[in-house]
Design a protein around this nucleic acid. Sequence first.
DNA 1: TTGATTACCATGAATTCCCATGGCATCCCT
DNA 2: AGGGATGCCATGGGAATTCATGGTAATCAA
Lengths: 168, 168
Amino acid sequence: MSQQWFIGESHHKVDTKGRVSIPAAFRKVLASGDPDFSEGANPQVVVVYGDARRNYLECMTIKAMNKIQRKMLKMPPASPQRRALQKMYSTQALVTSVDETGRLVLPAKLRNKIGISNEAVFAGIGENFQIWSTETYEIENGLVTGDDDFDPDLDPSHYLFGDDEDEE
Amino acid sequence: MSQQWFIGESHHKVDTKGRVSIPAAFRKVLASGDPDFSEGANPQVVVVYGDARRNYLECMTIKAMNKIQRKMLKMPPASPQRRALQKMYSTQALVTSVDETGRLVLPAKLRNKIGISNEAVFAGIGENFQIWSTETYEIENGLVTGDDDFDPDLDPSHYLFGDDEDEE
DNA sequence: TTGATTACCATGAATTCCCATGGCATCCCT
DNA sequence: AGGGATGCCATGGGAATTCATGGTAATCAA
């Protein structure tokens, strides 16, 4: 069962062809989230580059993608919500697979979108992970925007308080 | 099982004869959704150009078309709903096949319908995909119509929140 | 015959595949 | 504890293949 969540942060080189190594730990999660994965083969990944306001790529397993697709199919076909989701998760997304050497190829379009020159940051978010250009990542993650219910100066673990579910 | 969904977005040239390359990824989905497909042959596609309000072509696999036909057969024969569907999906549709070089030929009638000059956009929507003229696509997809429950400025992923199905 | 449609061939660019290397950590042997 | 030996990991380069696209010849329909 190895690892279930994408956890960790790491930096990787992006070469002229757009190839980037995926952190080894993430590859295992991808493999376990790919229904068609067989030992020795290469797991598939989904890369979502949709939303214009985002300056990172959202990556997930096939299982996670299928779950999203099922959710979308349950929404009213012509609703703006469903349309927005479909545009983002179906149209502006890419299904590809990890290569023999554990790398992912990011097409030029996607690299431009997030402004990657030659180095990328992989950030695990649990059920999915993000790819950032190193420069953007440093800037964007320095400043945390707060709203009325959020205090940037507070230790985040405070928000875990209360309503514990059963163990494990 | 290769790929199950039409996912991705890409631009392709349309020549004077109406020939357009179908994105390679889409061709694989078409092949797997064609019951009569045999290795090395050319998969079939269904192109629906019916509805006057649409300024794009809706394309799907044979399997998807069969599903729609079955649904229609279950509806009351003389109902306006069934008639409308039949007109769109049976009358104003075209079954054709991908050629040797991976292209599709769009007859002049269909090109005029969606106003294609010399470039088309292919947009994957999961179970099917759309063909747009580049110009229309840019315009139509820039403006997002909002209603009371829809905020165009919100990241679409918000609409995925809640009501989780059981874990698999 | 004439315009349109289909089949066949050609090519550059992009992408995928395959092989190679250096570094770091782990294991194992004595 | 030293010192290989082993193996995985990140990265690089070149070859081989696929893709998108163009052109020309053959076939068809009216």
